[in-house]
Amino acid sequence: MSEFMMFSLVPLAVAVIISMTCALLGNFLVLRRQSLIGDAISHVALPGIVVSFLLTGVLSSSAMMLGAGVSALVTVVMIELIRRLGRVEASAAMGVVFTSLFALGVLLLEWHGASGVHLDVEHALYGNLESLIWFDGTGPAALFDPVALADLPPQLGRAAWVGLLVVAMLVVLRRHLVLGSFDPEFAASVSARPALVDLLLVTLVAIAAIAAFEAVGSIIVIAMFICPAAAARLMTNRLGRQIAWSQLFAVLSAVLGYLLAGHAPGWLGFEASVSAAGMIASVAGLILLAACLAGPRRRRTGAATSV
């Protein structure tokens, strides 16, 4: 029990909170056909973090987050610019921007690789979920001990705040978001400010992606923006139920993925465990696959009826 609390409780909680947060936003990204924006923002966090490290010389969380935030902003502006000047689709512009910025981040990392700081591409992809150890979490009593609670890894608190922020914003903006996602022209005609809501959604996605990036790496973020929501869409034709399904799938992916990463290699006779982030993302992908094969609403309803 104490072993679970010390080594597994915090990683599991962080994985669940971040998965649920990203999946919640993912519902709207999937409905707006904007899933790629989550992918783009979590990729460009890397160059942002590297540049902030090169400028400050230290690996502090606040500097990293600031760097990632600035790079997210630069990305959104670049995507808009390329879309307008090049007159190409948004997804094409996103693809160009985030791949080149991510490549730039990798190059910058390699040039400064000799500095021996714990900052590398694998870290960026997989995060460090397993290293979120709660040293004071020696037993159930620690949950009520202020001293032990103060020792909780800061990533947990950060994930919780971001999760609360996202839920609060979505509750306030729910009608704006639904209307702007379904019919932006009508939304504009009833002063629902679809462009502003678009911007807020992208900002929330950036905040969630960046907060999640450090703790769990970009793989989980990308997977959670897409897989649970896409799978949930195949389960129901009602938006409220879709959101509920996406949350269930997110929790399932996080818990199953974390447990499988620790134990599945053992069942197969291997000593080591595998990356929890990678396994969580894989489970999310498998859930999506299952929904594609067996989900009750897997046919596009529009295709079912002929005109």
Partner: peptide, 21 residues
């Protein structure tokens, strides 16, 4: 044709959108 009719909503949900304000 300007909207995606595959959006997860019922007829009544769409009509209620008219009462947004």
């Amino acid at each position: 044709n300007s909207v995606d009719w595959d959006f997860p909503a019922r007829v009544i949900d769409v009509v209620v959108m008219g009462l947004f304000r």
